[in-house]
């Protein structure tokens, strides 16, 4: 097997005196979906933000393919073009139509001509069931539609790696499904995804690997079956029983 696409080694992140990530080791192979689970405040978002270079790591390395993202000599903007990220909420630019949201980066950053960018954006929107919303502004969309549009925007630059940070947790339960269907579809198409999620059922369905984050380290890692059904660590068991009780 070849090198994993994303390789995280010994990543450490501290906010002031608060140590959030102690030492994270994590691999994401190409065409895999890896789910991060863990309690609120365990550092899932922080880890994703470190990978997308929105935060500077305090130690350790992150490699994407050949290049080391944590190299300070690296141009962060160039590296970020290979990564798409979708947050929990507030993703879309409210002053632009859905179509313009999606074509902004292809046109301005990648220099794709307008026609071509719009054609592929419409194709994307069609695939995500949003074809009729292209000209609408984000405030006219439901939460689920907004998140799907945000995913379309992240896909528009054809990134090597997608980062999703609890993209369904701001949604009504009935809207969660439509967004998760999109993610499952992306997995079918062979995209590489690292996502933080609270949706254990979904993780079980689509994740190739599940990682449980606690105390600033990945406490347990394995297939969804292993981690979610037969966790070895007590902390994982405690976490799962708490989460499953509530859902």
């Amino acid at each position: 097997m070849s090198e994993p696409l994303l390789r995280i080694r010994g990543v450490r992140k501290q906010y002031g005196s608060r140590l959030v990530l102690r030492s994270i080791d994590l691999d994401v192979a190409e065409h895999q979906v890896v789910c991060l689970i863990g309690g609120s405040g365990s550092g899932k978002s922080t880890l994703l933000r470190c990978v997308d270079l929105l935060e500077v790591v305090d130690d350790g390395t992150v490699h994407l393919g050949e290049s080391e993202l944590t190299d300070p000599r690296l141009d962060a903007n160039l590296a970020r073009r290979r990564i798409g990220i979708v947050f929990q909420a507030y993703n879309l630019f409210p002053h632009l139509s859905v179509l313009d949201n999606i074509t902004l980066a292809p046109r301005r950053v990648h220099g794709v001509p307008r026609r071509q960018a719009e054609a592929s954006a419409l194709e994307l929107l069609d695939r995500l069931g949003l074809a009729d919303k292209a000209q609408d502004h984000p405030d006219r969309l439901s939460g689920g539609q907004q998140q799907r549009a945000a995913i379309a925007r992240a896909l528009a630059t054809e990134p090597d790696l997608l980062l999703f940070d609890e993209i369904t947790s701001a949604l009504d339960p009935e809207l969660v499904g439509e967004v998760l269907d999109v993610v499952a579809d992306l997995k079918q198409r062979g995209l590489t995804i690292l996502m933080a999620t609270h949706e254990m059922g979904f993780a079980r369905q689509v994740a190739d690997q599940v990682c449980f984050l606690e105390d600033g380290v990945i406490l347990e890692q394995g297939t969804a079956e292993q981690v979610l059904t037969a966790p070895r660590q007590q902390a994982t068991q405690r976490f799962l029983s708490r989460v499953l009780d509530h859902s």
Binding site: G10, R12, Q14, S17, R18, L19, V20, R22, G38, G39, S40, G41, S42, D58, D59, G60, T61, T70, D71, P72, E214, D215, G216, R242, V243
Partner: peptide, 22 residues
């Protein structure tokens, strides 16, 4: 209550060679 306590700061942490170089 899904809150996890932050890990206590670790005294014996030493920056790696890579981090020192950075």
């Amino acid at each position: 209550d899904f809150t996890t306590q932050a890990a206590p700061p670790d005294e014996d942490y030493r920056p790696s060679a890579r981090e020192r170089e950075r």
